[in-house]
Design a protein around this nucleic acid. Sequence first.
DNA 1: CAGTGGTCTAGACCACTGA
DNA 2: CAGTGGTCTAGACCACTGA
Lengths: 234, 234
Amino acid sequence: MTLHERIRSDIAARIMAGTLAPGERLPIEAAMMRDYGCSRMTVSKALSALAAAGLIDRRKRAGTFVARPRLHSMVLDIPDLPQEVARRGQAYAFRLVRRSVRRPIAGRAREAGLAKRGRLLAISGVHLAAGRPLAAEERLVSLDAVPEMAAADFADAPPGTWLLRHVPWTEAETRIAAIAADDAAAAALAIAPGTACLSVERETWRGDDAVTWVRQVFPGDAYDLVARFGAARG
Amino acid sequence: MTLHERIRSDIAARIMAGTLAPGERLPIEAAMMRDYGCSRMTVSKALSALAAAGLIDRRKRAGTFVARPRLHSMVLDIPDLPQEVARRGQAYAFRLVRRSVRRPIAGRAREAGLAKRGRLLAISGVHLAAGRPLAAEERLVSLDAVPEMAAADFADAPPGTWLLRHVPWTEAETRIAAIAADDAAAAALAIAPGTACLSVERETWRGDDAVTWVRQVFPGDAYDLVARFGAARG
DNA sequence: CAGTGGTCTAGACCACTGA
DNA sequence: CAGTGGTCTAGACCACTGA
């Protein structure tokens, strides 16, 4: 372990144990230089990492303080479905149900945003694990942003994975909700209408251009999302 | 904007725009020192931040490369309920339904973990927004870890907020699922049994000691969780 | 085995802000 | 206005690892 890592984990351990309480002031950097016999840059590197992780607040002239804890943000793992299914030891497949290229329907703001003056690609399909439906997917793709997707078949990879490979480094917003399966989703998933399902809806942009919108519906008993939070982050 | 921030945002912008493609090699640090007329520490600070944000991979002897994008982890905001309700402009209240101190029930691994040889506090209640049920909460608290909670009333703050104030810096794991409301949850939330609900279940530790377990059940139409991902993170 | 990143030093000047 | 953190320099030695 390098020196700045040791300083960092020393302080983190004292904060997590409560020896350093929230609001309490830490020694000034000069004191830490003495204590650890190191230069200021090394202390600063350790403290910067702790500040980025949210464990401390650094304030000029005032000093460095143990932060008040917040539970507000956690890291959520949103796995790639083929990978996740493979990890469970099951065979993955994507069944394409419908696919069309069309103009946006007037009055639908989302479709207008995806296809400003051009066309969009609409896809529905079902993700299968071990031959059984895992999730129903409805997707819209901007053919302005990704013209080459018009020619893609999804034999190798489902649309989401295809996009991840072909359109790197996008920004996204995900919305998670519980919904009752409507008739279409129930039929696709082979469950009773009204069954509680997890809806994972995502909008993706590249800069100011909308790339895709997708909603995946999972039967409630088939899928959990897990998020973790703790000192290990950052 | 400082120099290392400028270097960082220059490179991040080129990656997000695709000018630097995934897998592509970046100039070596010495070249960046020349380009920006700065010292190696400054270049290194910018590149370290980009590596921590997952945009680049740095490999000794080989060089620095644009990372292959992953959508796998996103930052999820899990708001404090009183704050979230206040932000919506509604009045928040917590209605305590039941509260008991007891020994763990034999055979329940979770309860045994929370109260190794001592007792645990079991709480049920309902979070109210503008007088209407927002979420039903079931909670277990280790009185080994938080003995002073035995004496707490929840007039000022619901149990989760109370714990956040009194037990700083814990680690947690959250599990999100869709469930059908059972009879108890339906009664507490004043909805029909079987209604699709979002279940947010969290286990919290302090070091190796379990502190609390909680499940909050939200009617599907009352609550969404939102997560964001993009270059702005890190 | 040489090129690359990783760490660290001992200084310097500056910006901010609360005593 | 003085004490604190924020940034930056110009070097050094080292660890790793792939050509």
